[in-house]
Simulated scan of single mutants.
Amino acid sequence: MNITAEDILGNPEYRAISYGGYREVSRETQPTVAELKEDMKILHAMGIRILRTYNVQLPHASNVVKAIKELKEADPDFEMYVMLGAWIDCKNAWTDQEPDHEVESEQNAGEIERAANLAREYPDIIKILAVGNEAMVKWAASYYVQPWVILKWVNHLQEMKKKGELPEDLWITCSDDFASWGGGDPEYHTEDLNALIKAVDYVSMHTYPYHNTHYNPEFWGVPEEEEGLSDLEKIDNAMERALAFAQGQFQAVSDYVSSLGVDKPIHIGETGWASVSDGHYGPKGSRATDEYKQGRYHELMREWTEAEGISCFYFEAFSEKWKDPHNKKGSENHFGLLTVDGKAKYPLWDLVDQGIFKGLGRNNKPITKTYKGNKDSLMLEVQVPPTRREQTIPH
């Protein structure tokens, strides 16, 4: 039986995650196929069945697919699928020249060709192809493009499907911020976006209440009527509001798509919560960052999305050091549910207790709990969100 994107997206039996296997401070050190297979076994044990990758400029994604293929050959019961990302940029992105957001990068055509070739080569593994990652949102100032660029490549890939040059059941999307999909500022409501919504097979949207604890923190601070609660109640209530914030962004995208007369699946391409931050989200900022809150957010998101038939490519599987190489405590380095050296953070402690990681590990180390499994030690670092009076709401 050929399993398709339609079968797995929104199906709680096919849990999804965003994955980068990088273990060093630079992507120049590519993870080996053997290391990727180590990670695949860990994720499979966690119940993950769909991985999201981000580009085919580097060998990482093709090696991930190769690792899955080899694991399937060794064990017919091993099941894993891929949402393959093709990276899209504007002209002069990541150079010392001014980015030109009205013109696309000369690299995009080659990236789309590589992605299409890989999807054609591994139709039993690659079920989704995503054109761009946060490539339309205006705050991606170093590389964002106009929606017509994404639309052009989505149409190109859809045409390839019609001609039989790609599997007809390969789903094509773009993975972008909720605002880029019409769920925020009306400046994004363009004819090109509307055409894109009609062209994709489903909408893949991102939502990050974590970042909004700093940038849009009205939902986060402890309201006056909750000031008499225990610290844990204040924290848990704040996490419930964080979930509601994400649900509101999802609903806003859904409303915009519906307003166009379009009935199309919407799934979450990214959402997550960092466990370490020395910046905006740490002790001197929004106090949003620790493993307890990460665990609650992961639990709340999984419960909601699985009950509603929404796939959630939770960000992310393992923490990666290259994201913010000059600042070890930068939050971007700490979104993983597992640390770089393979320790299970608080969201996964119960899985360690269940023994699902027995015989598995990363870098030849078994999977153990952070904080040596001592919740009291963990909770010493957990801070209560600021009261509304303490908050300085940025404008």
Rank of each mutant, 00 (worst) to 15 (best):
S105K: 01
D192Q: 08
E6K: 12
Y188A: 14
Y188K: 05
T305Q: 01
E165R: 12
N133E: 13
Y122H: 10
L58R: 12
P347Q: 07
K365Q: 14
R23S: 05
I268L: 14
A119H: 05
A252R: 03
W181Y: 02
A34G: 01
G282C: 09
F335H: 13
I3L: 13
S331F: 06
E35W: 06
E226M: 10
S26Q: 08
W139Y: 12
A135I: 06
G164T: 14
N194K: 15
M136R: 05
I68R: 04
L196R: 02
E6L: 03
N327Q: 14
I17S: 13
A116C: 13
V203K: 04
S18T: 15
E227P: 01
W181M: 12
W153I: 08
N212L: 01
S258D: 15
S275I: 09
I266A: 10
D100Y: 05
F318H: 09
H326P: 00
P99R: 02
L193A: 11
V137I: 09
G21P: 05
L129G: 11
A86T: 09
G269V: 07
K358L: 00
G373A: 03
P347K: 03
E224R: 01
P386Q: 07
I48C: 09
E113H: 02
P186W: 02
T213V: 12
F250P: 06
Q158I: 04
E187P: 01
G269P: 07
D341M: 00
A74R: 14
H189E: 14
V203A: 04
S311D: 07
T392D: 09
R296W: 08
Q294P: 05
E13C: 00
P123V: 15
K321M: 03
